[in-house]
Design a binder for these strands. Structure first.
Lengths: 335, 335
DNA sequence: CCGCCCGACAGGAACGATTCAGCCGAAGGT
DNA sequence: ACCTTCGGCTGAATCGTTCCTGTCGGGCGG
């Protein structure tokens, strides 16, 4: 079937030059004469030669690809982060391989191993759980792979990271809900090991403590953080008789919102609703959603920038970039 | 700096066995004794060995990775297709590399070349434009790479493809709008070379022709197919005085919807609105959006299935899978 | 005119895993 | 007791590039 894949050698023969010269044309066009370049290029086109990246990397022991492992590629927030990463990486000649861990440590593990086998130059990752990822990431770093944590806070000083202060974000949301007079808040979160979601809960709790009147906070834990689960949990949610609901992210909030509307619950009059991320659709939902904005695109860009610095191996100081979250108040929680 | 990356040879030495045996343990665990396997595994763990995928592929000249190149990774429709692909591929031990062409042929070209250099086993692609992609895809196929077109209709019989009948989808939408008494329809589309969007327009035109009364159809072309552009174009859109708007996809429709609402246009009374794709958020928007559903997850699964068949090289007959679109009527276009 | 230097190219040794032919020793058949 | 067989293992050849070392010829200074 395969028409004897053509290698650099055949190109050389066809152009009547040596093997090494072909390589030079490809990698150091400035070091060869014009005539040579043209001859070789002609042969390449004619034979339809494509360089074998595996062989090249085997020899060079590094590639121009970087890996991006996200928690949920279907979440517009991460899609936007990805766009930021790609934009920056493209400018620097890197290729981005996007992998989706779907919040599953096993899948994450699988992807990381693959990346490691591919000898990627660097890795951007939103870890599923700090514990499970730490050892593998340490191993990667020891092997010389640059690693930048995305959407993960300063844990230790020995690594680069980009994050939004999730606690602060939760606090903003909580303070706002208390402000508009809510006293029975339910926090809707996901599987118990997602750090971001937990930090937001902590922030909420902190804001609530500052209130002079007593405020009740319940937590509703979903098996997965997506619209469907948000929609499904509404009965359970209403059983807690909240006057406000704060969701760990917008896609859950949108699911919840739909459920509330279907049951005739008035938003925000009966129940105020606040999400997190401020994805594009938050402002377009049935009742425009109050949300805590994260600068997704900027996060991606910043992470890519850090990774590039680290890849270039300059005497590199690990840095932690932190973005401030911003509360965007819309109709779903107005007084 | 890298601590002398450990190779298979060092593992062999450490375990006191031959180099070939280590390879056997990794690739044909059934052909070696229990004792050997344990010894080698211990050495691997101890040294933190990770196989060099480049070397392996160089020798084998094929990998277990497949590429997925989509038009817009930020569009929930493609995200869902991606999920379908990943789910199926994972079951068969393949790794999916997701690349985003963002509708740009250059970027697509860049990604395709990268994939080719990587010697991926197969490729799933939603081409930007048929013309620009055709020659490169043909080259890939000639080189023995399986290629399946995603969301692209039966163009020729010599390739696999998975698609939804976009013309039919457009027809469904058009017939519906005519049914609910609309006579001044604007079709909102994107850059002129996107096949899907054009097919939908053709379907719309076909439906309109069947109407006994005269129906006016205008076309509004946006520079990009996203919410922002949809939102921006509303003034221009309203200048055409439509009583119905059909958008090439849901994300544009959601942008348009937001613009209409802000301007106090009553939906569906003044203007009926229909989208395409039926993404998850369509049903959750300010005014639930009528949309033409595509089974995104199923499309991804089917495409992956075809690709796997083709990869396995069985005497493979190229097949074209076609899904039927389904009109989901919601409030945005109800009579 | 001779030697030197320099640019342009040729040739070949890695890179690390795979795989195949071959080897060895034990078990089984005659 | 000898030959065959077979499982389990070894070692070397191999994949396609890269990059370093060598060679060759021409230009230039002495």
């Amino acid at each position: 079937m395969a028409p004897k894949s053509v290698g650099i050698e055949e190109v050389a023969r066809h152009a009547g030059v040596s093997l090494g010269s072909v390589s030079h044309v490809l990698n150091h066009p400035d070091r060869v004469s014009e005539a040579m370049r043209e001859r070789v290029m002609a042969a390449i086109d004619e034979l339809g030669f494509v360089r074998n990246g595996s062989a090249a990397r085997l020899r060079a022991n590094q590639s121009n690809a970087i890996g991006l492992v996200v928690l949920d590629a279907g979440n517009p927030f991460f899609a936007e982060v990805g766009r930021g990463v790609e934009t920056t990486m493209e400018e620097h000649g890197y290729i981005v391989m996007l992998c989706n861990s779907n919040g599953s440590p096993q899948r994450e593990e699988q992807h990381l191993r693959f990346m490691e086998e591919q000898r990627v130059a660097g890795l951007l990752i939103t870890p599923t759980t700090a514990r499970s990822s730490d050892t593998r990431l340490a191993a990667l770093r020891k092997r010389g792979v640059a690693v930048v944590l995305v959407d993960e806070p300063v844990r230790r000083q020995n690594q680069c990271s980009v994050a939004v202060d999730d606690v602060r974000g939760g606090e903003l949301a909580g303070a706002h809900l208390v402000d508009v007079g809510r006293r029975r808040i339910v926090y809707v979160t996901g599987p118990d090991d997602l750090r971001q979601l937990d930090d937001r809960r902590v922030g909420l709790a902190r804001a609530v403590e500052k209130c002079s009147e007593p405020v009740n906070v319940d937590v509703l834990r979903l098996p997965a953080v997506n619209s469907r689960e948000g929609y499904r949990c509404v009965d359970e949610l209403l059983a807690l008789h909240p006057d406000a609901v704060f969701c760990g992210n917008d896609i859950v909030a949108l699911g919840v919102l739909r459920g509330l509307i279907e049951r005739g619950v008035a938003v925000p009059d009966d129940v105020a609703l606040v999400g997190f991320d401020d994805i594009e659709f938050a402002g377009m939902s049935a009742i425009p959603l109050t949300s805590v904005r994260q600068p997704a695109f900027g996060i991606g860009q910043a992470a890519a920038q850090l990774l590039i610095e680290e890849c270039n191996g300059r005497p590199h100081e690990h840095r932690q970039v932190s973005f401030e979250p911003e509360l965007i108040v819309r109709q779903s929680s107005r007084a």
